[in-house]
Simulated assay, not measured.
Amino acid sequence: MSDTASEIAPEALADRIESRRRVVLLDVRNREEVGEWRIEGPSIESVNVPYMKFLSAQATGGIEELVDLEESYVVVCPRGEASAEVADMLTDAGVDAVNLAGGMHGWARVYRRQRIAGDATAATVYQYHRPASGCLGYLVVSGEEAFVVDPLRVFADRYAADAEAEGASVEGVLDTHVHADHVSGLRHVAGATGATAYLSETAADRGVTYEVETVADGDRIDLGDHTVEVRSTPGHTTGAVSLLVDDLLLSGDSLFLDGAPRPDLQKGDESAPEFARTLHETLTERLAPLPDETVVAPGHVPPGTEPADDSTYTARLGDLRERLSVFSESRETFVERVLGSMGAPPANFERIIAANLGRETVADDDAFELELGPNNCAVTAD
């Protein structure tokens, strides 16, 4: 080959997607892999041509027949190796192509941060977003103290560094529930910073094997000049909680911007109807009465979701009450709809739960591999 294609870093691709610039992805994985997990976004066009087709075409001199010669491509594979070969082939053929460095594994290491609250009287809150899975986490800063909510283990070092840049130290870290889609960074953040690790009493009762301080409905955690109020919001799991900080509701996996969480990951299909009924009560009786101006910041968004005008993944509770059917439908109608639209569970969710309870020890690399792919913690969008 006479030319070598250039690369685009995953962070640079994220910048391009967030700026709503058109991106044409040439995904050279097999169709099953693409169907399970892909890079998504409102400005993305995706073309799937498996790697083996390019090898065959290279042998017969027909590469030009597989692509649009006038198009510009970002080529994607699992780890950036096969896609580098394809990008080189295309470059040799005169096609504008760049390789996504690290492939989907590199994409899974992108972690974005956006300020979503903070003025002279309010706490400062940062929202973290993992585009590969839609996972969201939070850093709350008040004065010289910081509080982390739903940290991811693979990014455990980020939160303390960002708090330090704000002149604060991490004093507390909390998981809103026992996660099933990603390996929690709760213990790693607490261990590295000396912060207190929090779980709800009910979550801890599921058999957590490590030391945590438990909280319950109505508890308040002091943070600088502010308090973090705990609200019990079960249904997705028995121990799920949401947090109120000023007029911001960190809803965890209890309420999403496009609907409700699935109720089957803790005890399976048999108990899902009971969990769904509890979830309906949580949404309609515990969360719906909050003021319209309450800003909901959830624990997940579907990959590819377009953010709000302020570049955050948030919405007014009043707007959610108007557009989500859960707030107007009967309990049994809600249960029937949720049970009929759960889809496939998160990959490796049983091992991830075991790791998050402390029952299984998972190395860093293995933890990263376990959680690759979509989180699938929600039912089909409302």
Rank of each mutant, 00 (worst) to 15 (best):
E211V: 11
V74Y: 02
G41T: 14
D310S: 10
F147P: 02
I8A: 10
Y159D: 02
L244C: 14
A120C: 07
G343H: 03
P261L: 08
D181F: 07
V125A: 09
S83T: 13
S169F: 07
P42F: 09
H226I: 05
G343R: 11
N99M: 05
Y126Q: 01
G103R: 06
D365L: 09
P234C: 04
T91M: 06
E306D: 15
A84Y: 01
F275C: 07
P234S: 07
R29Q: 11
F147E: 03
S184D: 07
V148Q: 14
D92I: 05
A216W: 00
A97S: 09
T91H: 02
V76H: 02
E171V: 15
M342L: 10
D219Q: 07
V295D: 01
S2H: 10
C77M: 07
E369A: 15
R130F: 04
V189S: 03
S184G: 12
T196F: 06
T196P: 09
E360D: 14
V74H: 02
T193V: 02
P261I: 00
D181W: 08
D162N: 11
S242F: 01
V23Y: 11
F155S: 04
P298N: 11
R79F: 04
L243C: 12
A59C: 00
L66H: 11
G102C: 06
L139V: 09
E371T: 08
L357R: 06
S328W: 06
M342E: 13
E166W: 05
V34S: 02
G103E: 09
N375M: 12
E85G: 01
F256M: 12
H129Y: 15
D319R: 11
M52F: 13
V178M: 12
E166M: 08
V154Y: 06
G304H: 03
E64T: 13
P346G: 13
V228K: 09
A97G: 11
S83H: 11
G207K: 10
